[in-house]
Computed example of a mutant assay.
Amino acid sequence: MNIVKNIVALAALSLFSFSGFAQSVTASASTLDSAEAKIALQAKQAGTSYKITSARFTNGAYISAELVK
């Protein structure tokens, strides 16, 4: 149940566009490499670079990052 709450919270946070200098994004996948690839794709589409702020691997990989201009 706690994992479901975390996933929902991460999904909700990834939908918000923060008006500050950096935007937070999240991705989940079966491996850390594939989750990072999703983050890299989001950064490329936004025309920015990214900085990983957290990563964990529990029944799948979850990465949070900030897109920075």
Rank of each mutant, 00 (worst) to 15 (best):
A11Q: 11
A22G: 07
D33H: 06
F21K: 11
A65T: 01
V8Q: 02
I52R: 01
R56D: 13
I52V: 15
T58W: 05
L67S: 00
V8S: 00
R56S: 15
Q42R: 08
L32M: 07
I52F: 03
N59L: 08
Q42I: 06
K38Y: 12
Y62W: 08
N2P: 08
S49W: 07
Q45C: 03
S54Y: 07
I63F: 02
K5H: 08
V8T: 07
I39T: 08
E66I: 09
M1H: 15
F21L: 09
M1L: 14
A27H: 08
A9K: 10
S64V: 12
L32T: 01
S14H: 13
I7F: 09
S64F: 05
L15Y: 14
S54F: 07
A61Y: 04
A40S: 12
A55L: 06
R56K: 12
F16L: 12
G60W: 02
S54R: 07
K69S: 05
F18K: 09
N6W: 12
S24W: 12
A55V: 08
M1A: 13
F21P: 10
S28C: 06
K51M: 10
Q23S: 11
S17K: 15
A11I: 14
L13Q: 14
S17L: 09
A40D: 03
N2I: 12
I7C: 05
S64T: 15
A55I: 05
S17C: 12
A43D: 01
Q45V: 14
F21Y: 13
A12V: 14
F21A: 12
K69L: 01
K38E: 13
G60M: 02
A61G: 03
A9T: 11
E36C: 04
S34W: 05
S14L: 05
L32K: 04
I3P: 06
S54G: 11
I39P: 01
A55M: 10
N59F: 11
K69R: 07
E36N: 09
A29I: 02
N59V: 07
A65P: 01
F57A: 02
I52H: 04
A65W: 00
T53Q: 05
A43Y: 00
T26K: 07
Q23T: 09
L41A: 12
Y50R: 01
L32E: 08
S64P: 00
I52L: 06
I7W: 07
V4P: 01
N59I: 05
E66F: 07
A37T: 09
A61D: 03
K69T: 03
D33F: 04
I3D: 14
A22W: 11
V8E: 02
Q42K: 15
A11V: 13
L10P: 00
A43P: 04
L41K: 13
F16Q: 14
A43I: 02
N59D: 14
S64H: 05
A27R: 04
S64Q: 11
I7S: 04
I52T: 06
E36F: 02
A65C: 01
Y62F: 12
F18L: 10
F57P: 03
